[in-house]
């Protein structure tokens, strides 16, 4: 948490349809549950149509949902290129969790190009922050069985960083409230796998 402002700034970056908005909202609900002021920015615009989506969660006293350049304390990158796209918001103090599952931008397909190699993307992010944590999303999805658990697994990973001003269970309870009962178990598994993926 940024010492001077006592605010924790979390950026959620992903692709429309990955659940970035929902994930940001869960973080906001969890903060509220422990009576912390929170503001969540979800200025998705037209990007829900498969475009890039960026949400902010700012926990602590404040008015605006803006995260300025270099100000993110945590970046939750639901997709490698989207994590790279949000580099401007990162600093050497930022903890960045990246899902390794790739979604090919259609702009590449139109040019006949493949998705770039993963390792150089991660190496480039490391030039800004050494605190890079990767989550093998596709493997997690294989383990849990449904792809829609990805954002919950990533929330688990963010919780696993132990940066949040509330415990894992507070976040889980916020998630639990909004998930249909039949999907609870699979999401809990995803959440736990996410937690353990960063706490090694």
């Amino acid at each position: 948490m940024n010492a001077s402002t006592k605010r924790l700034k979390i950026l959620v970056a992903g692709v429309g349809g990955q659940g970035a908005l929902t994930a940001a909202r869960f973080l906001g609900d969890a903060a509220m549950a422990v009576n912390l002021p929170v503001i969540v920015g979800q200025l998705h615009g037209m990007s829900q149509r498969g475009g890039a989506v960026e949400c902010s969660v700012i926990i602590g006293p404040g008015h605006s949902s803006h995260i300025g350049d270099g100000e993110a304390d945590v970046v939750m990158g639901l997709e490698p290129l989207e994590a790279k796209r949000s580099l401007a918001k990162m600093s050497k103090h930022t903890k960045c969790v990246v899902n390794l599952g790739k979604i090919v931008p259609f702009s590449l397909a139109m040019r006949g190009e493949s998705y770039p190699e993963l390792e150089p993307i991660l190496a480039y992010i490391r030039t800004v922050t050494p605190h890079l944590y990767t989550v093998d999303g596709p493997a997690l999805v294989r383990q849990t069985g449904i792809s829609r658990t990805l954002n919950v697994a990533m929330l688990g990973a963010v919780a696993g960083l132990d940066m949040l001003p509330f415990g894992h269970e507070v976040l889980w309870q916020a998630i639990e409230k909004k998930i249909p009962p039949r999907f609870l178990e699979v999401n809990r598994r995803a959440f736990d796998l996410g937690v353990s993926s960063v706490s090694q």
Partner: peptide, 16 residues
């Protein structure tokens, strides 16, 4: 001023 970073392939919205 803010640092400059490599450009990332654009991902504009598209028809589903």
């Amino acid at each position: 001023p803010a640092l400059e970073f490599e450009t990332v392939p654009p991902r504009p919205p598209s028809l589903c």
